[in-house]
Write a protein that binds this DNA or RNA. Structure first.
Lengths: 88, 88
DNA sequence: AAAAATTGATGATTATAATACACAATTTAT
DNA sequence: ATAAATTGTGTATTATAATCATCAATTTTT
């Protein structure tokens, strides 16, 4: 391995994702923040890899219709654990 | 569709995932919290679908070596957006 | 190149997540 | 069934995310 990843890196990835989603729809932080009912500062922090609440992240993902995909990803992970031990 | 998902549901999924990861290793909230340097209360809240910080979630995922997978998921999402518009 | 729009960043205040302690309720083990 | 361990939940306090206002810096538009 050696390719271990830090929490900070994941936060930056998440920030990049949120920014890409927003850019893709060509809306400003200002506008999106208003739509989500959060401050522009909070949104900027999320996009810049600061440490927001899970709620803030999920609000953004919900707006861009990414909640279902994420939920599927998570549930698959959970299911693979609760299964009778993948015998092979 | 009609199968839209709420933020609360995703939080519960995330909590279930974290709990499943912990149960899979057969360690208590107490022990895991100490390992992560967070309070047992914070960990319990995460597992019960409350609203933690992203940092708390990522600490748990890091412990169970799930950061790399998550990061890949996120970056794929980001890449698919920054690509030259999937022409079809 | 200038103007306009967008974004990054600061300080002060508010809201809330995190901590610490305790105890009840539940789950697991004997 | 009892005891032990684990987990959920309460209050009080502390740490920090979120808000609000503002201004500088950057990016985009004309």
């Amino acid at each position: 391995m050696l390719d271990f990843i830090t929490i900070k890196e994941v936060k930056l990835s998440i920030g990049d994702w949120c920014k890409a989603l927003r850019k893709d729809e060509k809306i400003s932080q200002q506008v999106l923040a208003e739509e989500l009912g959060i401050s522009r500062f909070t949104l900027a922090n999320l996009e810049n890899g600061e440490n927001p609440t899970l709620d803030t992240l999920l609000k953004v993902l919900q707006y861009f219709d990414e909640l279902k995909n994420l939920n599927r990803f998570i549930q698959e992970k959970t299911d693979s654990l609760s299964k009778p031990t993948s015998l092979y």
